[in-house]
């Protein structure tokens, strides 16, 4: 089942056919979004940094934003054999790494990334079947194309599968 392990960097995305594993390391306030087709086992993973490309002047990197990143990921998994009607999504990340007493928009970026991700997946009618978001800790995630299982590793907050 192993196959290749492909790393997805920050503000980056990638897709694979079965077999293989997609991973992204050290998610903080960013959100990792997976798309999986259980029949063809085509898998995709995006690591987005910001909720929306619309408010940003320099927005040429589509994988950086939830709105453009998810759309790009969807196109890419379909291109290699996924069927949109079968796709399911899992999401992880969106932590708030540092806390301050005064509420500040920049500090809540993790929360805003998660909200934007859900809104966009909802708009595309792709169900989110599992999530591990929020908190104040980092996550490394691995998506196994064999099973669609998403493994989440942390420092001091355990390991789990969703």
């Amino acid at each position: 089942m192993t196959g290749e392990i492909i790393k997805v960097g920050m503000a980056d995305l990638n897709v694979i056919k079965h077999p293989g594993t997609l991973t992204t390391l050290g998610l903080g306030s960013c959100v990792g979004i997976t798309l999986y087709d259980p029949v063809t086992k085509v898998s995709g993973l995006a690591h987005i940094m910001l909720p929306s490309s619309k408010a940003i002047r320099n927005n040429s990197n589509t994988a950086k934003f939830a709105d453009t990143g998810i759309v790009q990921l969807l196109e890419d998994v379909i291109k290699i054999g996924a069927s949109k009607s079968r796709l399911v999504s899992k999401i992880a990340g969106g932590a708030q790494m540092f806390s301050f007493s005064n509420k500040n928009d920049i500090m809540k970026i993790g929360e805003r990334n998660v909200a934007a991700t859900k809104e966009i997946l909802d708009g595309l009618r792709i169900p989110i079947i599992a999530e591990d978001t929020g908190g104040n800790f980092g996550r490394t995630i691995e998506l196994y194309s064999d099973t669609g299982i998403l493994l989440i590793k942390t420092i001091g907050h355990g390991t789990k599968q969703i």
Binding site: L25, G28, R57, N58, M97, F100, I106, N136, G138
Partner: peptide, 27 residues
Amino acid sequence: ISVPSLAIDMAGAILSVPIIQFGQVGD
């Protein structure tokens, strides 16, 4: 400057905070 907030965690996760702020204007 404000009072400090400290975190010990994965480099990527900690760095996502300044990187996201830089990310609003560039790469």
